[in-house]
Lab assay of single mutants.
Amino acid sequence: VSVELPAPSSWKKLFYPNKVGSVKKTEVVFVAPTGEEISNRKQLEQYLKSHPGNPAIAEFDWTTSG
């Protein structure tokens, strides 16, 4: 189950709350306009370098507050 949070234009930000008793931590995933899922800052940096014209990296908020 995921919750969609505010994201930069043409992107989606999905929040996957951890299940009770789960060892997996809460996860935030950005979905690029191409449909590619980005789950960490390093991936995001690589994606933005190879896909010019996207929002600046500073516009991506990895917190769950939206």
Rank of each mutant, 00 (worst) to 15 (best):
G35W: 01
L5G: 07
A56R: 08
V23S: 15
N54Y: 03
K13F: 02
T64C: 09
K25V: 11
S9I: 12
P33V: 02
Q46L: 13
K12E: 07
H51P: 00
S65K: 11
V31P: 01
I57N: 04
S65R: 09
V20S: 11
P52L: 06
P55E: 03
S50F: 09
T26F: 14
T63I: 05
S10G: 15
K19H: 13
K24A: 13
V3G: 06
G21H: 09
K19P: 14
H51F: 06
G35Q: 02
A7C: 07
K49W: 08
E4C: 11
G21T: 08
V1L: 12
V31F: 07
T26Q: 13
T64I: 14
Y16R: 10
E4K: 07
S22T: 12
P6R: 07
S50Y: 08
T64P: 13
N54H: 07
F15T: 07
F30Y: 06
Q46F: 10
Y47W: 04
E36F: 04
N54G: 12
Y16F: 13
N40Q: 06
K49T: 11
L48C: 01
L5Y: 09
Q46E: 14
G66H: 11
G21S: 09
V3C: 14
E36P: 00
S10I: 04
S50H: 10
Y47N: 00
V28W: 03
E4Y: 07
S39W: 12
E36V: 07
V28C: 05
R41V: 13
F30E: 00
N54F: 03
L48W: 01
T64D: 08
E45Q: 10
E27F: 14
K19E: 10
S22L: 10
K42H: 13
T64Q: 07
S2K: 09
S10K: 15
S9W: 08
G35N: 03
A32V: 01
S22Q: 11
K19R: 14
K42R: 12
E27I: 14
A7W: 05
E45L: 10
L44F: 01
L5N: 05
E59H: 06
P6V: 07
E27H: 15
P17Y: 15
A58Q: 13
G21R: 06
K13H: 01
E36M: 04
W62Y: 03
T64K: 07
K12D: 06
Y16L: 07
T34D: 09
G66E: 12
P52W: 03
G53N: 08
N40S: 12
P8F: 04
L48I: 06
L14I: 12
L14E: 03
L48G: 00
G35K: 03
F30S: 00
V1R: 09
Y47D: 00
K19N: 12
T64W: 11
E45I: 10
V29T: 08
K24V: 12
K24S: 14
N18Q: 12
E37V: 15
P8Q: 04
A32D: 00
F15S: 06
Q43D: 14
V29S: 06
V23I: 12
S10Q: 15
D61M: 04
T34W: 02
G66C: 12
P55R: 03
K25P: 09
I57V: 08
W62F: 08
T64F: 11
N18T: 10
K42S: 12
L48V: 03
N40M: 04
G21P: 07
S2P: 15
L44G: 00
E27N: 13
T26L: 12
A58G: 12
T63W: 04
Y47F: 05
G35C: 03
W62P: 01
S10F: 11
L14R: 06
Q43K: 06
S22D: 12
F30H: 01
Y16P: 03
K12V: 10
I38T: 00
S50W: 07
A7P: 15
S50L: 12
E59R: 04
I57D: 04
P8M: 05
E45D: 08
V28I: 13
P8L: 05
T34K: 01
A32P: 03
T26V: 14
K42I: 12
A58T: 14
L14D: 02
N40I: 03
E59A: 08
E37K: 13
L5A: 06
W11T: 05
G66W: 08
P55M: 03
E59I: 04
P33G: 01
F15E: 08
P52Y: 03
E59Y: 05
R41Q: 13
E37A: 11
K12P: 06
E37Y: 15
S39A: 10
E4A: 09
W62L: 02
N54L: 03
K24N: 15
G53M: 05
F15N: 05
K49G: 09
I57H: 05
A32M: 01
V29N: 03
S65Q: 11
G66V: 12
I57F: 13
N40T: 11
Y47V: 00
P6Q: 08
L14T: 04
E4I: 09
A56S: 13
T34A: 02
G21W: 01
F60I: 02
A58M: 09
S65D: 13
K13I: 05
P17H: 10
Q43V: 08
N18K: 09
T63G: 12
A7E: 03
S65T: 13
P17D: 08
S22R: 10
W11I: 05
K25C: 13
S50A: 11
N40F: 04
V23K: 14
K25Q: 12
R41K: 13
N54Q: 10
K19L: 14
F30A: 01
Y16D: 03
V29H: 06
T26D: 14
V31R: 05
S65G: 12
S10C: 15
H51S: 03
L14S: 03
G21I: 06
P8V: 04
S65N: 13
Y47T: 00
P55C: 03
K49Y: 09
S22G: 12
P52I: 04
P6M: 07
K49P: 00
G21K: 08
D61R: 04
N54C: 05
D61N: 07
Q46T: 10
L5I: 05
T34N: 06
T26S: 14
P8Y: 04
A7M: 04
E59T: 06
L14Y: 14
E27P: 11
Q46K: 10
P17T: 13
A56T: 12
P52K: 06
V28G: 01
V28P: 02
K49C: 09
K42Y: 12
V31K: 04
S2L: 09
A58D: 15
P55N: 04
F30L: 03
F15D: 02
S50N: 12
E27Q: 14
Q46V: 10
A7T: 04
K13Y: 02
T26W: 15
V29E: 02
V3I: 14
T26A: 15
P52C: 03
K49N: 14
E27G: 14
G35F: 02
I38P: 00
V23Y: 09
H51V: 02
S2D: 06
S39D: 09
S10Y: 13
E4H: 08
D61P: 02
D61C: 06
W62A: 01
V3E: 07
E59D: 10
W62S: 01
V28F: 05
